[in-house]
Amino acid sequence: MLFKSVKDVQTRMERTGYIPSQEISTIVFLAQETQKPVLIEGPAGVGKTELAKSIALCLEQEMIRLQCYEGLDESKALYEWAYAKQLLYTQMLKEKIKDVVSTTATLAEAVDEIASHEDAFFSRRFLQTRPLLAAISSIDPVVLLIDEIDKSDPEFEAFLLELLSDFQVTIPEIGTITAKSRPFVVLTSNNYRDMSDALKRRCIHLYIDYPAFETEKTILRMKIPGIQERLLSQVVQTVAKIRELDLKKKPCISETLDWANSLMILQQDDITEDALFKTLNTLCKHKADYGVVRKNIGHLMKVGS
């Protein structure tokens, strides 16, 4: 079921457990109405991928995910012929092929005869569909998530452009496959490199930052039912302070959740220095970051209380 309005996006996404800001819900609604891909930028762990999942849940559509990496090419993203299978079949059907050509008189005729059967070997049976082709050829509309597009090569980006504008693919041996229903496309980028202007032009741009104080509290309250209000605000405040520190990897929302969970399990009602150290490995994932937090412990505790 499609979204009816911006407000509708908000309420339905909240029901799936994703708290969108007004900007996010506006853009999701616009993308659906104008059938344009959304390009999401933002630091790691702010819920870019989560947003796509939530959209799929709301729209009750399947989500197809393509994870990009350096060296990703069409054969991994779109389709590939199953060569080994084709070769194997040719071997197994050798006798049959002999039968087919046995009635022909000349070599030329034999070739013609074989040619009329070549469809058998270049049919869908030998085609390995990869995420992009799966998204296009699906009968029901799907949500297509192209994750970390900034990691892919420029060549792949150029290829994607073509796909995103027409939603059709040509496979020389089979023909052109046009999308039966346009997928809802979400691209995410961690800004490892800048995307080309051409790609940006085709997308609606959305920047997601770390959630605001109140939003993060709402998220925690929803994901960890039964958390004390006092502990909740202490957790969110401390994490916000830790994010301001000079860290290799700043704690993201899921790490805040992990931390709050472990504090709950340890039955801490307050964040003390001791409790913070005991649970620090849920927040910091680098040895160097440990030291930084340790050094600034006084500052962090001042906020916590």
Binding site: Q22, H205, L206
Partner: peptide
Amino acid sequence: VDFCDESLFNTVLRANFAKS
């Protein structure tokens, strides 16, 4: 969208014109 709401108006313009 209802562009009389300025935040929506701003969001639309920003999403289309400022792409990084």
